[in-house]
Design a protein around this nucleic acid. Structure first.
Lengths: 331, 331
DNA sequence: GACAATTTTGTAATCGATTACAATCCAAGT
DNA sequence: ACTTGGATTGTAATCGATTACAAAATTGTC
């Protein structure tokens, strides 16, 4: 493999000069620069970034930890992150945890091992203390999720108000007996959406039947199964708020499988606004999260941390939006 | 930051010994090992992987170049890759090209720059010669796509026979006037699927109306628009073979928008078998690609290349499968 | 207890760049 | 011609680990 010394030799200059041509061209005389560039060209030299990074103590790489890259919501956030990263000359190391807390923990080491300059977490199921500890020493930002009582910079929507908005919409349309299918309750964000649901019900003086609140795992299947459970229990609400579009679609499939119709017989409202939510029939009424923008903002925040710039607002809340389609009707 | 010398000092041994404890524990005496581990523990030492990698000239990282991570098909392949990668102690650097050939080229350098030990390309739109050149010096495998006439190891399905199978299925069901919506024809794989379509038509002695062959870009929108074009031209086939499920769904949406029904009025057959294809209504009849497995196999192949093991079969063809649902009917 | 064989540990070179500091060059000013 | 100061260039230290080789320690044998 051709190294900087080969180039230096060929161009008849020192390695320092070659290095300077590559990194601070303004400090070397034009004629020399040309000689060096010619040599680089001739030898097809590519600098070994490992060496540079070791010397500079920076990798120009950031780590993104995702619970499941297969989930279109997360992949869209990731794309937002990636866009800003490459624009700043950074590369993205991908950490898919497959929803496994242990693997999630494992990725924390990567920063200490200097394989990345910073990281954005799209999941924070693990030990909050461990994350805090790492965040004290390295640039870390949370996206989508957050850690209660932590000062780690965060980008997300306001899940409580988003869910409240969703539930109030149902209530305002005359629904009284409303079911809620939540995400896994060991995740803050799931608890927040549930909390928003409760708040809306309380504000409008409606009681929530505990049987109609069921814990899912954000997946299509869990939505389907929990709806079937409602049927089995003979406890039918007139509307259901599902904490993810995936689950909402599962719910609708279940309803259809029983020969009922959405929204005529039961209304369903989701959360996320995936691309498929508009293709699905009926079109899903849902709370839209600006996935791509969450990613962008998170990465911008991370860049600031890495560059040790001042970060004023540490918790960025982006606007969510109720997207009305056809899966909810007036009672 | 605490380095190996700090540990060595604390444990009262040389840096060599510390290093050995970490990498070849069997060569150091038990009591020493303990001392060292205690020091490591006490100082919370984490080795700087950059330094190790520079010395060893390996990164334990592989690069995956994807045209669009947001596409669920690719993210599933990626997941297969990732699974095998972590199982082998490798990390995944993500390169999303956003379907941009220039960015695709840019990623080729990463290997020469020693930021990754190998790469798997899920897209190969760029200059074949450039890829070949890199592949001559570094471990590279292609997944899904391939380069004509190249000996670069490849994992994919047989797109020609897959498409032929699809078209023959339609023909056997009595369809004669069949439309085909292809992927971008600058991609081999799109051309292959089109070729398979032609082969099937020829074998059964059917003529294909050139108006009914239109070039899409794999997206939902292009499927929708091209179907609308068929309507506008007044050229309706009884069945359409779309080269991706996304496009197939677009086609179906367009058909529905005209008040017609699938499969009653027009049959539609897709390609990929995305998760949504079974949720969509009507359930999509489609050619299933083993996305996760393609990723796994590709990464296994790459591991072999990296470890300089013998690679016997360089072109791995995985089995595709016709999945029959409700979007196609007998004429 | 002496010696050889073996195990364990230490010293210092090394990976391939960057960069502090020193040396050299060159043009302008006197 | 001789300084002088800024622009260029070179020398060698450095980043933080690994590892070849040498040295020291241990074990076994007679």
């Amino acid at each position: 493999m051709v190294g900087i010394v080969d180039v230096a030799k060929k161009a008849n200059v020192s390695t320092a000069t070659v290095s300077r041509v590559l990194t601070k061209p303004e400090t070397v005389r034009e004629t020399t620069t040309e000689k060096v560039l010619k040599a680089i060209e001739a030898l097809n030299y590519q600098p070994n970034l490992l060496a540079r990074q070791l010397r500079r103590l920076e990798t120009n790489t950031i780590l993104v930890v995702v619970p499941d890259i297969t989930n279109p919501f997360f992949s869209k956030v990731l794309r937002g992150i990636e866009a800003v990263a490459v624009a700043n000359g950074y590369q993205v190391l991908l950490g898919d945890t497959g929803n496994d807390v242990e693997r999630e923990k494992g990725y924390l080491n990567i920063l200490q091992q200097k394989k990345a300059d910073g990281m954005v977490l799209l999941t924070a199921r693990m030990d909050a203390a461990a994350v805090e500890e790492v965040a004290r020493c390295f640039p870390v930002v949370l996206a989508c999720e957050y850690i209660e009582g932590s000062r780690i910079p965060t980008v997300s929507i306001d899940n409580i108000s988003g869910a409240r908005k969703a539930a109030e919409y149902l209530i305002d349309l005359g629904h009284v007996r409303i079911g809620c299918i939540t995400g896994p309750l060991d995740i803050v964000l799931s608890r927040d959406r549930l909390k928003g649901f409760y708040q809306a019900m309380a504000r409008k003086n409606l009681i929530v039947d505990p049987v109609l609140v069921q814990e899912g795992d954000f997946s299509f299947d869990s939505g389907f199964n929990l709806m079937m459970k409602f049927f089995a229990l003979g406890q039918l609400p007139t509307a259901i708020f599902a904490a993810s579009d995936d689950m909402a679609m599962g719910v609708i499939k279940a309803i259809k499988s029983k020969g009922l119709k959405v929204p005529e017989d039961i209304s369903v409202l989701g959360f996320d606004n995936l691309k498929f939510s508009s293709i699905f029939e009926p079109g899903l009424t849902t709370i839209a999260q600006p996935a791509f923008e969450i990613g962008e903002k998170a990465m911008e925040l991370l860049m600031k941390l890495i560059n040790k710039e001042e970060v004023k607002r540490e918790q960025i809340i982006l606007a969510d939006q109720l997207v009305v389609r056809e899966s909810v009707r007036t009672i």
